[in-house]
């Protein structure tokens, strides 16, 4: 199968110590991959390398078959950063304006916003279930709603790959499940490949198609069935000893009162 991202033997060090060692990973088209790992495990570094926010030191990264560095088609990749929910909440911008800003690169410099762009923005806002809030200021929304807006901003340029860095930080517990369902829906119905870095190992495992565990080394990479079997031993390797894993196998939405 065609792979969207191909990472080959990547190492990365900030000063002396390696944050990433010998990472190899291949993400097939249409996958929903979750990378899980503790704080400081190099998850964000790996994402930054993929996005070109950090320079690859050793090894190779290929995006859509092209080497990172020569890759130019950035509109194929949508990005939702971890920091999205720590932006200046007093910023005077409506949901519409924030989502429309996702078209900036695709439209190109010196181009002015037109009617057809408006339609695209409305569609993206609808896809994340925020139609009723489109003219509200972004600062008036809850953390979960803001995060949906940022996903809409990434979706509006119709990316083939969506990269999310801990998207549920700041989303209240009740809405986390809904949030992942929305992502799974985008993955299935729009065929968008998803790469997500997260802490929510339990909640995420029944929504995604592939899981990888990262703690300096990439410990595991496979589909979720294999992951379920190897989960205990792998998890203790990644997180250290005595890890209690919580499993969530209730029906969606039914378990809570």
């Amino acid at each position: 199968m065609e792979s969207i991202i191909e990472i080959k033997n990547v190492y990365y060090q900030y000063e002396k110590d390696y944050v990433l060692e010998n990472i190899s990973l291949s993400i097939p088209k249409g996958a929903f991959l979750a990378i899980v790992g503790p704080n400081g495990s190099g998850k964000s570094t790996l994402l930054k390398l993929i996005l070109g926010l950090l320079k690859v030191q050793t090894g190779k990264i290929y995006l859509f078959g092209q080497e990172q560095g020569k890759f130019k088609d950035w509109q194929k990749i949508g990005y939702v950063s971890q920091k999205a929910n720590s932006f200046n909440t007093g910023f005077p911008a409506t949901v519409f304006e924030v989502v429309a800003s996702g078209l900036t690169k695709k439209m190109g410099i010196f181009k002015v916003f037109k009617k057809e762009h408006s339609a695209q923005v409305v569609e993206a806002v609808e896809a994340v279930g925020m139609r009723d809030f489109i003219h509200r200021n972004i600062g008036e929304l809850s953390g979960g709603q803001q995060q949906r807006v940022f996903i809409a901003r990434a979706l509006v340029s119709e990316p083939e790959l969506l990269i999310l860095d801990e998207p549920t930080v700041g989303v209240d517990v009740e809405n986390v499940n809904n949030f992942y369902q929305m992502l799974a829906h985008l993955n299935k119905n729009k065929g968008i490949t998803l790469l997500m870095v997260t802490h929510d190992i339990g909640t995420v495992s029944d929504k995604v198609s592939h899981v990888a565990c990262l703690n300096k080394h990439l410990h595991f990479h496979g589909d979720t069935n294999q992951f379920e079997q190897m989960r205990m031993e792998e998890m203790s390797k990644v997180y250290g000893h005595d890890v209690h894993l919580l499993t969530h196998h209730h029906e969606h939405g039914g378990a809570r009162q």
């Binding site: 926010l53 950035w74 990005y79 950063s81 999205a84 932006f87 910023f91 304006e97 900036t104």
Partner: peptide
């Protein structure tokens, strides 16, 4: 607008 609202995102999207 994008640079003012979210500089990191602006850079990540290749502006």
């Amino acid at each position: 607008f994008l640079l003012s609202f979210d500089e990191e995102y602006a850079k990540a999207s290749g502006i």
